[in-house]
Each structure stands twice: as structure tokens, then as C-alpha cells.
Design a protein around this nucleic acid. Sequence first.
DNA 1: GCAATATGATTGTCTCAGCAACAATGTCAG
DNA 2: CTGACATTGTTGCTGAGACAATCATATTGC
Lengths: 156, 156
Amino acid sequence: MQQVSETDTSAQQPSPADAQLDSWRAFLRSHAHVTRQLERELIAEHGMGLAEYDVLVQLAAVPDRQLRMSDLAERLLLSRSGATRLIDRLEAAGQVERVSCESDRRGQWATLTPAGVERLRAAWPTHLRGIREHFLSRIPPGEREHLRRSLERLLP
Amino acid sequence: MQQVSETDTSAQQPSPADAQLDSWRAFLRSHAHVTRQLERELIAEHGMGLAEYDVLVQLAAVPDRQLRMSDLAERLLLSRSGATRLIDRLEAAGQVERVSCESDRRGQWATLTPAGVERLRAAWPTHLRGIREHFLSRIPPGEREHLRRSLERLLP
DNA sequence: GCAATATGATTGTCTCAGCAACAATGTCAG
DNA sequence: CTGACATTGTTGCTGAGACAATCATATTGC
């Protein structure tokens, strides 16, 4: 996530809008805080960043454990070149393989290897625990649905 | 913000936890989407990223329009070295100045120049409009308080 | 008063993401 | 069929942040 933090209208205005912005500030700060925790834990316990983890998850979640590079990039919220380098690394580590697409010779499939499956299997409890600890457990169950609906309104 | 996107437990598990994670996914996606919009608009209209904008805001919001480098770094949710480079850029652009601290000769004050104030004055309507358009206007007023409280629970 | 330690800021180096340009391939109008 | 255009993935370049090491200065303990 890009580095984003505060926002404020103060400066020279008395800013009647300031109070409204509290929710915006909370949004930014909470996101920065939670994702940092998760990344820290994932690196500490598995030497893997959220980006790499996300690739494994995306591939594991899909029928043949493979995705076209562009499709993957989109799901990762990453540029195509970003996906290329990321897969370069994971391929070097043996967790993903590139397989040429037969029906479209421009294309490559990024496919999860058994080693990649294993890596994900080892890492996901850490991540899931992190999400529970730093996110779910702090939002009372009754509010989660409400929170989700609020946040989804922000999507296109 | 670092690139963060999806999360999923699927893979080989039937994942009873999946439904709970919807709120988590919404959190990630909404943040990515909104901050990208804001950054895009700020760059398009003022050639300035969120990081730079944030510096101006932080300095403008404070008594003498100046902050110690370390203090600034903390408010920006950035490393100290990150703040150094960021201020390097803004100083080169004439919007911030470094002033030695008299009471502690190790320290530097990052101070907003009149040009910086002007720059902020020009940019903040864009940013505030963006926040209204992409965030506030999508969360009904009655829900904002609730959302803020939920999100603040995630903070330390 | 002086050595040891802590702190503020900067710098070097590494990593990683985006953009623009490119080659290879696919698609489609005529 | 063919030539214009689009798409896929990769690459070189550049920008930007994190970390560790360093430098200068403050503070603390003796």
C-alpha cells in the first residue's frame, strides 16, 4: 500500500469540516497499523511479504492453480510489470512456475507448484491468526456486517 | 502504502472462516481504491503525491508551521530516513526549509515556507473534494460516527 | 570534567513498484 | 489476405521507502 497517512484541512481555515474528517483519518490510520502488523508477523515467521503471500493465495484459490499474468496483476492490484518481477522472485524460489499458454502464444500461466502449495499451507495460519488478532477480534461480530457494508460502498 | 490486496483462506480448506473475512477484504479493497483515486487526482491537478501533500498539511497544522524531523516522520507514518528524503525534495522545490534547532544543535526544524503555504492552499480543495467524493459522500452521515468508532478500535 | 551512552538526522545501499518502450502475437476491417 | 491496431508479457529506467551505519551533538553517571 502506498504510504498514506494523515489529512487535515486546518491550516488557515477554521475548518468546519474537520469533524467529518475524523472518520477519514481513522480509516487511514487503522489500515496502516493493521497491515504493518500483518506484514511484520508474516516476515518474522515465514520470511515472506504480503505481496508474495497474496500471489500464493490468489493462485491457490483458482481452478487449476494458475492464472494468466495480466489477470494475476489485476487481482493483486499491481501493475503488469510489478507482477512480472514478483513472479520472477517466486519462480526463482520454486513456488511458482511459468507455463506458456497454448491457445495464445503471447501468454504465460503463472502456476503454483507443490512447493508453493506447501509454503502457503505453512504460512496461512500465521496470516489468519493475524487477521483475527488485529482485525476481527477488535470488531464485535455484530458490527462486522455493518462495517463491511459501509466499506463496500466505497468501491466502484 | 504498501501494496496489499486480497486475502483468502480457501485453497484446500472449505474455510468456515471465509464469511468473516468479507469485512477484511472490503477493508483492503476500499482503502486501495480510495487512496489511488486521491493520489491520481492530486498528481493530475497539482503534480504532487500524497506524501508531499501530507507534509504540507502536517506542518500547516502545527503552531509555528514547523516540526522536528523525527516528529514529522512519526506523523507521516514514515521512517526517519524516508522523511529526510521527502523533505529534501520539498526543500529543493522551495516549499519547506530546514532550520537548525537552537536549543538542541543536533536537531532540524522542517518549516513551511510561504511558497509551501501557497502550494497547500492551492492543493487542498482538490484533496478535500476527493475525500468528499470518494469517501464521505458514500458513507451516509449517520454511519460515519459508527464507522469511525469501529475503525478506531483497530488502533493500539 | 570526562567517558559512556543515547538521540537526531543524514547517507549508502537494497528492494520494489510504476511508467514507457518494445517484441511477439492476436484480431479485425476492408 | 493484409495491413492497422490491440493485447500480452518483459525490460530499462527512475522514483521512493526501509534498514543499517555513521556523524554530530546531548545527556548521564562516576
